[in-house]
């Protein structure tokens, strides 16, 4: 795939990448290396300028700035994009908007099985007790869990997460990544961008290194040379 923002040099240049079912692939690179753009292209938030992206065998199409996006691909932005005035449960239920009926969701009358599912997801992520809390009252780690819960409510086949643990302390980041690892083990593909070496070695199946929009390394996480990772962040 190839992409450039208007009036700027190419952000991604002839990048090719495969994320398999159940794999946790981490993309490492310095700021401006094209990590966020890669995820937004895969989600359909930006129009591709060259090449193609396939999710579950179907090409990803840009539906315009207001069109409907594929719910099977979940996207967690860097600052999570949670609605801070809504409760934890409502933010989680937001993930099911693509499959809840329009009228029911507008009236906030979600089907009981969806509400039950949301509560189960929150319980599994350890924040079931805070379901009725408003998001602005939560800690950083709790917010990450809400963002993951919202993504899981989409029943996704692919989760794209953009440096979403970068602002957490190491212990909380490790807990969140353990949860992500379990999600990958359940058969969901995960593409996570990061600049945290420690996380890469412990949780990723594969590592892709980007430098100035080009893929310079793509190998199993256990085999990745530390020098190459260090170099990638310069």
């Amino acid at each position: 795939m190839t992409f450039a923002y208007p009036g700027h040099a190419s952000v991604l240049r002839e990048l090719s990448l495969v994320v398999e079912q159940g794999a946790l692939v981490m993309v490492v690179g310095a700021s401006g290396s094209g990590k966020t753009t890669l995820l937004k292209l895969a989600k359909g938030l930006l129009p591709l300028q060259g090449g193609e992206i396939f999710v579950l065998g179907q090409p990803v199409r840009w539906p315009g700035t207001c069109g409907r996006l594929d719910r099977r691909v979940a996207y967690i932005p860097q600052h999570l994009g949670l609605v801070r005035t809504l409760t934890v449960l409502d933010n989680t239920l937001t993930g099911a908007l693509g499959r809840a009926g329009l009228l029911r969701s507008l009236l906030h009358r979600f089907p009981p099985q969806i509400v039950q599912q949301a509560r189960e997801v929150l319980d599994a992520l350890g924040i079931g007790a805070k379901a009725e809390e408003r998001v602005y009252r939560l800690s950083g780690g709790e917010r990450q869990r809400v963002a993951i819960a919202r993504a899981l409510m989409q029943q996704p086949r692919l989760i794209l997460a953009d440096e979403f643990i970068s602002q957490l302390d190491p212990a909380t980041a490790a807990e969140i990544m353990q949860a992500m690892r379990r999600i990958a083990d359940s058969g969901v593909a995960l593409l996570v961008t990061t600049h945290d070496f420690d996380i890469v070695g412990r949780f990723a199946d594969r590592v892709v290194v980007l430098r100035e929009g080009k893929k310079v390394l793509d190998c199993p996480a256990r085999e990745v040379p530390v020098e190459e990772l260090t170099l990638s962040l310069r």
């Binding site: 996006l69 967690i76 999570l80 099911a96």
Partner: peptide, 10 residues
């Protein structure tokens, strides 16, 4: 970012 995140759920 909030708009993108919620739009992303389809």
């Amino acid at each position: 970012e909030v708009v993108e995140a919620v739009r992303s759920v389809g």
